[in-house]
């Protein structure tokens, strides 16, 4: 199993960031390449820009430690766990970590590789909305 982790610092409070990250139905608004998202209970289905449906199981939404976890359910992926953590680092700033543990290994790079761009978009949206 391979692991990929991306992180970023956002000039917004952990509470503000968690309001976005902790809402599983809005990931397509900040994850580049996701164009639609539906949530029913613990089931989430993402649609990517290529038309690929990604069924997922939501594993954790922990408001106390600001952790969101999910796994992609595709036959070609024998194991996946995505973990997004939001840390309060003071002075109204947050550290956001997005980890991808996956098997087959190459899929960790394919999925996890996109998470860096997602964090960058998240940072951009949150910091620009603060300015506005």
């Amino acid at each position: 199993m391979a692991t990929v982790r991306r992180d970023t610092i956002i000039q917004r409070s952990a509470s503000d960031v968690w309001d976005v990250v902790g809402d599983p139905a809005t990931i397509h608004q900040w994850f580049p390449g996701m164009v639609d998202c539906t949530v029913e209970g613990k089931s989430r289905i993402i649609t990517t820009r290529t038309g690929l449906p990604l069924p997922e199981e939501i594993l954790t939404i922990d408001n106390s430690i600001r952790r969101f976890q999910y796994r992609v359910l595709l036959p070609v992926i024998t194991h996946h766990r995505g973990t997004i953590d939001v840390f309060d680092i003071g002075e109204n700033r947050s550290l956001v970590s997005y980890a991808t543990d996956c098997e087959p290994d190459a899929m960790a790079l394919i999925i996890g590789g996109a998470t860096g761009a997602a964090l960058e978009e998240l940072r951009s949206q949150l910091e620009s909305s603060k300015e506005n």
Binding site: F31, G33, T48, L52, A106, L109, I110, I111, G113, A117
Partner: peptide, 14 residues
């Protein structure tokens, strides 16, 4: 740009 792009993030692929 990378070929492996299930999210369709890259111009070459889209």
């Amino acid at each position: 740009e990378p070929f492996m792009d299930p999210f369709g993030r890259f111009t070459e692929n889209m």
